[in-house]
Design a protein around this nucleic acid. Sequence first.
DNA 1: TTGATTTAATAAACAGTGTTTAGTATGTTT
DNA 2: AAACATACTAAACACTGTTTATTAAATCAA
Lengths: 214, 214
Amino acid sequence: MFALFIMIEMGISERKEREREEMRALILEAAKHLFLEHGYAKTSIRGIADRIEYSPATIYLYYKDKKELMLALQVEAFGKMNASFGELLAIADPFARLQRMGELYISFALENPQLYDLMFMLEAPMEALECQQDSWLNGMQSFDFLKQSIWDCVEAGYFEESADIDALALTVWSYMHGLVSLYLKGRMVIFGEDSQLDRLRESQRNFIDLLSKK
Amino acid sequence: MFALFIMIEMGISERKEREREEMRALILEAAKHLFLEHGYAKTSIRGIADRIEYSPATIYLYYKDKKELMLALQVEAFGKMNASFGELLAIADPFARLQRMGELYISFALENPQLYDLMFMLEAPMEALECQQDSWLNGMQSFDFLKQSIWDCVEAGYFEESADIDALALTVWSYMHGLVSLYLKGRMVIFGEDSQLDRLRESQRNFIDLLSKK
DNA sequence: TTGATTTAATAAACAGTGTTTAGTATGTTT
DNA sequence: AAACATACTAAACACTGTTTATTAAATCAA
């Protein structure tokens, strides 16, 4: 009798929780679709609401504000990027792994410019982090992987024994981020409208040289 | 008689032109003040209008839209940055000059985060460029100076004779931009809240090493 | 100087934005 | 069946960039 009461109680609240998660996913799906098409600024709460045929106010029952919604998308984006790095585990040579990681990083950025924006350029999702910055640290597990690969490079004799892994990892990341963000934000027009991607690739090879010729 | 007529005619139209430029400068001054305090997104046309005690519509008589207003600010920002590079002309050794240029670039970015945003991260001013992209090329004269310094480094034997100057310049710029933009956009929190500036400096030294040990 | 005309400025509106509030149904519990 | 809780929304609030119609002033032609 008591057990039955609890089961019904738990059954309903569990269903409610499930429905709540389904609704959150529905909103997120619509947000993602619009965001990938038009970017953060041009994605409106009303647009998202229209797409799922709910009122705008409903969205605020599931997400605190637009920033938190974008943070949820950012988490998804990090998942996608981390997944794209999966093949790296099969590369034994650490320097080859490092090089391939750079290629994959650039590919991800160029193929998912809006997601890249969300992850590394927009302030909105970062402001939503506040206390719960675990999701950012979690998302940045790829940076740990980068550090590990650099460590492996040191052990394999590619870099000096005295190398500062943290600094080196930040240096590599900075270069990669700088390169793709200059490209994505249209700051490479100085090279002419057409040859920009070529310049990007040239610089990429250049940086590999810089790293390897130490 | 005829000459007098012309003089009056010209005198008025010249005054009008002068007054128009003064008004443009007045608007720009107000826009700059608000922008430096709150950034692009939070700077409103109404806010600018309030500050100069004119109606919002008046601003549209002097600037096509908000993007064009921000483009004018971007041009000013480039002027300021180029000026900050002035002292480099006094440095004879090309590698020391290159190193100092990096320091000045980072200093400018950290001391003028909103201006840096305008110059290298926001899309708004770039969209306003359209046909008249001369202002961007003009603003980027510092990039030519960077290329020149790298060329000098090659001649002085710091880099290989076969070095691709364009690619190397882009590589240096990408790294610098990546480093400061990761910092400015709060993506270096993985290093903890306090040590970020130290990490930035460490990486900077690291990159110099990478360049010099070739 | 007077009347016509161009110019400068604005009030008000338009179409949008993120977000909050008050109210209404529906589902759940007692 | 009555009391309560939940999900949802219409409408409003306070903004945003931008356009239009109108007014007042400066300039021009007679």
